[in-house]
Design a binder for these strands. Sequence first.
DNA 1: ACCTGAACACCGTTCAAGT
DNA 2: ACCTGAACACCGTTCAAGT
Lengths: 207, 207
Amino acid sequence: MRPHRGYHHGDLANALIRTALAMLPERGIQALSLREVARRAGVSHSAAYRHFADKEALLARIATQGFERLTAMMRAAKSACAPDPLRRLRNIGLAYVEFGRQHPHHLQIMFGGQIGDLHAHPELALVAREAFDELAGTVREGRRCGAIRNGDERTATLASWALVHGLAMLLAGGRVRLQDPRDADSLALSEGVVQLLQTGLIGKNGD
Amino acid sequence: MRPHRGYHHGDLANALIRTALAMLPERGIQALSLREVARRAGVSHSAAYRHFADKEALLARIATQGFERLTAMMRAAKSACAPDPLRRLRNIGLAYVEFGRQHPHHLQIMFGGQIGDLHAHPELALVAREAFDELAGTVREGRRCGAIRNGDERTATLASWALVHGLAMLLAGGRVRLQDPRDADSLALSEGVVQLLQTGLIGKNGD
DNA sequence: ACCTGAACACCGTTCAAGT
DNA sequence: ACCTGAACACCGTTCAAGT
């Protein structure tokens, strides 16, 4: 409550993460400095090094939280619909895209190349794999019950991932602009795109 | 030819770009500094400012060259196959993915969020649109001649873009690792993924 | 155990001055 | 016209010292 006075109460690590997340929308990831994060959190710049090995470790923790949230959104989407693998795959894909729209800066940190090697941060590598497995497991299920009949497993999984990942990245990076990011237009578009992978461009059914 | 002696011969701007591109694979975009680029090019750090307004302007020029090369590769792929829209769309998509595999750092700069707003660099916005139009034009052609029957134009275009963009980004970021990036495995996988969007996951034809 | 402040080597950017 | 060198305000990181 008193910002610039001595010790920080309790959990400085999370306070730094929250401060960094609040700064990202203001000036972008490019301008994010550890010194300013510490300054805004009301501690000296060197205090951060008690909690994070370096700047990349802070970004890795933010990325980790991003993957955890992404996984949670995909699981919620899976539970919220009938146990039909194709519906589930569709909903999981939509959740992925929705995550990117809601948390563009998380997505940039998770995939933007700031963090060179995932495996330098074991916790991050773990949650990234869990998120991937959520999607991969649903594709496998779809193939097992015969709903997905084209392509081998690896190809079908990668295509599903690439499609929603690409759309999420384009939305997060502002390359695809929508009238109003909060309205139904974006959802309708995402639904159409995700649906297209299931039915194929060639198809027979209009829309 | 004599690195640390007075004026740089002729085209310093391009020498700086080439130097930056040579440095990127070594330590990544995160560690790229204008001062070191100038140092390696054999000029003082302030000399770069005669040719680029700031660091972002250098990155924007690199991104611009990336889009030009991407467009060239897509055009070559289009010309190199029968004038069937579906084949062309497939080849253009494969060219997009191949670009990402060959020039991962270009792709990171083009889409990684280092450059906040494309429209701050008119030349960049132009070539980015030209690359997009190459793909969009082929989708439109496919719909006009009835080869693409599912989805409206916007959805079909965005799905095509998102799929290859996502795959290219995942490959460039090292999230999808292949046995040997130079061998046929990657090409076969890319072909399978791109093919899946045309036929759909549900489909009927095995492989 | 947790934080501070000085210190070091670096960076982006500007600007008067040189040829 | 093109480049240099000093200068300024900033950064990431380390470390002895404080409570």
